[in-house]
Design a protein around this nucleic acid. Structure first.
Length: 137
DNA sequence: ACGCTGACTATTA
DNA sequence: CTAATAGCCAGCG
């Protein structure tokens, strides 16, 4: 990978997450809302496939903002159109977001229900199941 | 306003 | 392989 642009990525967007969660926004409203973009991409993840925080961030042009993607997942289950956040893992295929589920084992359960095998909180055959939004979308 | 935290990742030692 | 470091940036005390 190359990094010729030290400039700030386009992912910046102040996102009053609390307003987002408590306010129903009219359809067609799609501004610089980074979180909604993340949700939109995450919803495209095919069943039985997984992707990473970094891959989603990169697809949105915010290469270095993988953390914000994970953050967006937190609200992902509170919005009207639910986001399959369980299909998003870290770059090694580890289920780092499992602690946000109730109970934590639920994330693994959801993945297994889609035919994905999990061993030690890690996606088995991760490389093969990996779905790259910027390449396959 | 400042510093720390965190569902991350790439780099370096 | 592991560990430390540095970017990243919105929220919170």
């Amino acid at each position: 990978m190359s990094k010729p642009s030290p400039k700030k990525p386009a992912g910046r967007s102040r996102t009053p997450i609390r307003e987002k969660l408590t306010t129903v926004r009219p359809s067609g409203e799609k501004d610089d809302n980074f979180f909604e973009l993340v949700h939109a991409v995450a919803r495209q993840i095919p069943k039985g496939r997984v992707t990473t925080y970094g891959a989603i961030a990169a697809a949105l042009g915010a290469r270095g903002s993988a953390r914000m993607v994970g953050w967006a997942m937190i609200s992902g289950h509170l919005v009207e159109n639910p986001v399959p956040a369980h299909r998003v893992v870290n770059r090694t295929g580890l289920l780092t977001g499992r602690h946000h589920y109730n109970p934590p084992e639920r994330m693994q359960k959801l993945l297994e229900k889609e035919g994905i095998k999990i061993k030690d909180n890690q996606v088995v055959d991760f490389a093969r199941l990996f779905w790259d939004p910027s390449r396959e979308l």
